[in-house]
């Protein structure tokens, strides 16, 4: 699988960066606008899958391989758990919102632990679903090259 036609490659090269920025925007503004860690992470994974389909698998696995996806998956999950347990320990309650303070003013810093939680979930879900796609397309025994 060496990728698709030059038209698809050109359009993907133009669009891929914007998809990544949009995914990051959805993750980081989860507490201000609709979205959040889960949809944002899926958008990031979709961008990587688009690169995979357009440029061929080897192009993307050079950047983000199966091992990297697994590592980011675990890092995101552990970061989320860390926020829940360690910060929750200081707050007294599991997942207590220790970082919130002052008046809500529609800034990125609102919401206390919600932003770090969203980032952790975004990393986790993005790496997770991209890893699932890689597993489905890489690990097939005797896979036909399309």
């Amino acid at each position: 699988m060496k990728g698709m036609t030059p038209i698809v490659k050109e359009v993907t090269a133009l669009v891929a960066g914007f998809i990544a920025i949009f995914g990051a925007h959805v993750v980081f503004h989860g507490h201000l606008s609709p979205g959040g860690g889960f949809p944002g992470g899926v958008i990031l994974a979709c961008g990587l899958i688009l690169l995979c389909l357009a440029f061929g698998r080897e192009f993307v696995t050079g950047l983000v391989g199966e091992k990297t996806a697994t590592v980011y998956d675990c890092v995101g999950a552990l970061a989320f758990l860390f926020i829940g347990t360690v910060l929750g320990y200081y707050g007294g309650v599991f997942f207590s919102n220790v970082l919130v303070g002052g008046k809500p003013d529609f800034l990125l810093t609102d919401g206390g632990i919600i932003l770090p939680c969203n980032v952790a979930i975004g990393i986790k879900v993005g790496a997770c679903l991209f890893g699932a796609f890689l597993a489905l397309s890489l690990f097939r025994p005797g896979s036909k090259t399309t």
Binding site: H31, L32, G36, F95, G102, P104, G112, I114, C117
Partner: peptide, 18 residues
């Protein structure tokens, strides 16, 4: 209490983070 203008996220990641 959560400082999150998006009430869905406030419930999802603060009240119901578990």
């Amino acid at each position: 209490s959560t400082g999150s203008p998006n009430a869905v996220m406030g419930v999802l990641l603060d009240f119901r983070a578990y």
